[in-house]
Simulated assay, not measured.
Amino acid sequence: MLLLAASIIISLSIGSSGLPLSDVWGILIHQLPWMDGGEGKWDPSSIAIVTELRLSRVLLAVLVGACLSLAGAGFQGVLRNPLADPFTLGVASGCSVGAAFLILFGFQTVIGIWSVPVVAFVTGIGALVIVFALARARGVMNIETLILSGVIVQAFLGAFVTFMVSLSQGVVNEIMFWLLGSLSARGWDHAGVVLPFLLVGFPILLRYAQPLNLFVFGERHAAHMGIHVERTKLIVLITATLLTAVAVSISGVVGFVGLVVPHMLRLMVGPDYRLLIPLSAIGGGIYLLWADTLARMALSPKEISLGVITALIGAPFFAYLLYRRKVLQGGSPS
């Protein structure tokens, strides 16, 4: 929590606008309910930069990061595999298909700001069902086959999104946003969309932390210990998909957060999901906040896509996990 607080303070303090540190924190302090808002001390554009752009983006990065990391922890717990996350299983690509479809045909405001999250959830669930159907053979679902099925579905749905980009004209830039991932041009309304999903999804996953601990010993052992295995898997997977859908609908495709953060925490604090789930929420917020800060400051005033930053960090980490898994299973490192 201290690291999260320090990360928020540092991220709020820096930006491409060049506002002095004293002005930034003076404006923030004057936003407290008992203060005057600071309208007479700073010009309106400076106040808007700090409160409407920087503060909302910092908090949104924390919320989106928490959702993606919690989703990754949920997938890894149910599937008993540290390589599982919403992106390697194709769920995020499924969510992107729904978002791109709405944007292409101009339906993204049919039910207001909730249109994209709802459709993204439906298409994400559809992608998950397809992955499970491909991976299951004679009632058995091999983990390696599951990961391979996820990669196949992800590639296919990614191609489908690219096809929709080729069909689009006036909205091509808006669809490309989903492919690259970004938190730019996002504000308080979008944070208000993510927060309810997080407030619902987090306690559900925390409620199933102990059953996920028992899953480590296998589904049959968990059933003997009194766990309703199929119900637990269904609830956790739906919750993780819901968290992924709302995150992707707001930020676009930001990969590897759900893979990197839970696994790093598992190495630090052990495999107990009673610790992993709350720490994944905090760690995911920290991770994505720093990634977004790097995205907007590395080439300031030009901004790098957030998905590029997380991929540059996550892809080598994913390769390391594959290498480590191969060595532990007795294979040749070469």
Results as ranks from 00 to 15, higher is better:
Pro82Lys: 10
Leu53Met: 13
Val248His: 03
Gly106Asp: 08
Val254Thr: 05
Ala6Leu: 10
Val110Asn: 09
Arg54Leu: 08
Gly94His: 13
Gly284Glu: 00
Asp189Ile: 07
Leu55Met: 13
Ala298Ser: 08
Arg186Ile: 06
Ile152Glu: 02
Thr244Asn: 14
Tyr287Asn: 02
Ala135Lys: 05
Ile111Met: 14
Met141Gln: 11
Leu68Glu: 07
Glu39Ser: 15
Leu79Thr: 14
Ser96Gly: 15
Pro44Phe: 06
Ala295Phe: 10
Val236Gly: 05
Ala5Gln: 00
Gly192Ala: 12
Ser46Trp: 01
His263Ala: 09
Thr241Lys: 10
Val118Pro: 00
Phe156Cys: 13
Gln169Asp: 03
Val78Asn: 07
Ile14Phe: 15
Ile313Ser: 12
Gly126Gln: 11
Leu28Gly: 11
Glu230Cys: 03
Thr241Pro: 13
Thr88Arg: 04
Ser93Asp: 15
Glu303Trp: 01
Arg296Tyr: 02
Glu174Asp: 11
Pro271Thr: 10
Trp114Leu: 14
Val229Glu: 12
Val153His: 04
Gly26Arg: 08
Ile103Val: 15
Leu60His: 04
Leu134His: 03
Leu179Tyr: 04
Glu230Ser: 14
Val260Ile: 08
Ser93His: 15
Thr162Asp: 12
Phe215Trp: 07
Ser7Lys: 00
Pro20Gly: 14
Leu206Thr: 09
Ser17Tyr: 14
Val171Gln: 07
Ile8Pro: 00
Asp272His: 09
Val64Trp: 01
Phe318Cys: 09
Ser96Phe: 03
Val118Lys: 03
Met141Leu: 14
Leu179Trp: 03
Gly124Gln: 11
Ile10Asn: 05
Leu55Asp: 06
Ser182Cys: 03
Ile309Gln: 07
Arg296Asp: 00
Gly90Gln: 05
Leu276Ala: 12
Gly38Pro: 13
Phe107His: 13
Ala247Ser: 13
Arg136Trp: 01
Ile152Lys: 01
Gly284Val: 00
Ala5Thr: 00
Met268Thr: 15
Gly192Asp: 05
Pro333Ala: 05
Thr145Asp: 12
Arg274Ser: 09
Val119Ala: 08
Leu214Ile: 11
Leu183Pro: 13
Leu243His: 08
Pro333Thr: 07
Gly252Tyr: 02
Leu59Trp: 03
Gly37Val: 11
Leu79His: 11
Val236Glu: 09
Ala311Asp: 03
Ala66Tyr: 04
Ala159Phe: 08
Leu243Gly: 04
Val161Thr: 04
Ile313Leu: 15
Ala61Leu: 05
Glu230Thr: 13
Ile29Asp: 11
Leu89Ser: 09
Ala319Trp: 11
Ile152Arg: 02
Leu104Lys: 04
Ile14Cys: 10
Val151Tyr: 02
Gly112Ser: 12
Leu53Lys: 04
Pro211Met: 06
Asp23Trp: 05
Phe87Trp: 06
Gly158Thr: 12
Leu134Ile: 11
Val50Arg: 05
Gln31Glu: 12
Ala135Glu: 02
Ile47Asn: 09
Leu179Met: 15
Leu70Val: 04
Val97Trp: 07
